[in-house]
Write a protein that binds this DNA or RNA. Structure first.
Length: 451
DNA sequence: AAAATTTGACCACAC
DNA sequence: TGTGTGGTCAAATTT
């Protein structure tokens, strides 16, 4: 708790510094960033102090020579803190309270976390960044490392961020080349708020690039609009596929902090999807993130669920392609949905039924989120789904919880499931006939079970 | 200079 | 009819 208090103090201090800096620099963005860099430095110093106090504990765990451990810890701090993006106040803001609270108990064992990390590095013998890239999700250690992964996001997003990893880097040539946006401005846009959500007391330095305004799916999207929405508070970005004659669109919903919480795909691409790459692309693209889950949710389902008016609704994905083991894993963490981003595929009555049989509704559930959610439930001792709570008068949401992992779906795209839910009604009613083609037996069974 | 993004305005729809 | 929201346009701005 003392740590969180110091964090608050830091935040206040930082805000003060920024205020002063803004006054002096007249709001110059560059200057502000520099100031925030100073802030990071300050924080780093503070962090180091904290680390000093933790050092003894760490040594007990790792039984490493003091100098060695200290060097390691400092190295960790440097790598972590120096990449904390601008406007990092969000990282320490109240938005983190949720995770801070959730992980408060864990924080009490902060040494343990660091120990785990150190231990992992010890065992693997990799540098921090190497670990971040190569680690695979099989244990809590991996989870912990995964949490740290975001910390390097700003330095080399295109290489290290989970999202970018998901990008089919070496995948076959897509109809349109990968967006250069992948490594650009939007990154900070996403990383920062994400960190704000994902970080906890001990994870305050973490920067989780879970969301970016444009999920790398191999298509080229042109943003044509953005709107602020009140409920949920945040913004909505509108994208169109830049491919000629392609009317595919997608809407990305972000929360107030810029964290993408939902992605709705509308319409089908009139061009071939990116060829899936079974080897390189997959291994690089996000295997490190785990198996994928694939499901199909359609307008029809939404309507039906709406009529049912459940306060909360949660189902398992109905159409998926992962292996049995993957499925097991997914079901084991099916209720993990903290801050998950949702990708929803909405068919917009475009004539391509055959293709749409495999319309994937893939939700990515970052293991980090899963881990945090796990910790939360562990602490609270329940498995409730907070996000499923509906506000009075609001349309019910169809929430599908599923752990995320990575894999190749039947449509040749690479998806990673990270959350799933229904949102407000779709303005484009779906053709029932088409719908029929979208609902396979499993879908029907699941839907039927809901009534 | 071109392309992409941002953002205010506009329109349609629902309540 | 007035208001709020969702979606889109397009000029301005940024990259």
């Amino acid at each position: 708790m003392a740590e969180s208090e110091s964090l608050e103090a830091l935040e206040v201090q930082n805000n003060e510094q920024k205020r002063q800096g803004n006054e002096q620099n007249d709001g110059n963005l560059v200057e502000e960033e520099e100031l925030e860099g100073d802030y990071n430095d300050d924080e780093e110093e503070d962090e180091e102090e904290e680390e000093e106090s933790q050092l003894s504990e760490l040594q007990q765990h790792a039984e490493l020579p003091s100098s060695q451990m200290e060097e390691e810890v400092r190295e960790e701090q440097v790598k972590t803190l120096t990449v904390v993006p601008s406007s990092s106040t969000a990282i320490l803001s109240k938005e983190n309270d949720q995770y801070a609270d959730d992980l408060a108990g864990l924080k009490g064992n902060s040494a343990l976390e660091t120990h785990v990390e150190a231990e992992f590095k010890d065992q693997v013998g990799l540098s921090h960044q190497e670990v971040l890239v190569s680690v695979t999700p099989q244990s809590s250690k991996a989870q912990t490392q995964n949490q740290l992964q975001p910390s390097v996001c700003p330095t080399s997003l295109s290489e290290l961020s989970p999202t970018s990893v998901t990008q089919p880097i070496s995948s076959a040539p897509s109809p349109t080349p990968p967006e250069k946006r992948l490594s650009s401005p939007e990154v900070k846009n996403v990383c920062i708020p994400e960190a704000g959500h994902q970080s906890s007391a001990k994870l305050k330095t973490l920067n989780v690039p879970v969301a970016r305004t444009s999920i790398p799916d191999g298509y080229n999207w042109r943003k044509y609009g953005q709107k602020q929405v009140k409920s949920p508070k945040g913004s909505r970005s509108y994208y169109k596929c830049t491919y000629s004659d392609c009317f595919a669109k997608k809407i990305e919903c972000s929360d107030h902090s810029g964290h993408v919480i939902e992605i709705v795909n509308k319409g089908m691409h009139s061009h071939d999807p990116p060829r899936k790459n079974n080897s390189t692309g997959e291994s690089r693209g996000g295997l490190s993130v785990g198996p994928i889950l694939q499901t199909t949710v359609n307008e029809h389902t939404v309507r039906m669920l709406k009529d049912s008016e459940p306060a909360t609704l949660s189902i398992e994905p109905v159409q998926e392609t992962p292996t049995i083991s993957e499925r097991k894993r997914q079901s084991s963490s099916s209720s993990d949905e903290n801050k998950e981003t949702q990708i929803k595929e909405e068919d917009v009555s475009e004539p391509e039924p055959k293709r749409r049989q495999a319309i994937p509704l893939i939700w990515q559930c970052w293991r980090f989120n899963v881990f945090c959610s796990f910790l939360t439930r562990l602490k609270k001792g329940n498995l409730e789904c907070p996000k499923a709570v509906l506000k009075p008068g609001k349309k019910p949401k169809f929430v599908v919880h599923a752990a995320g992992d990575v894999g190749i779906s039947g449509d040749g795209y690479r998806w990673r499931k990270y959350g799933q839910k229904m949102v407000k009604g779709n303005p484009h009613p779906r053709n029932p006939t088409q719908m029929a083609s979208l609902i396979d037996m499993d879908d029907s069974a699941v839907i039927a079970s809901l009534f």
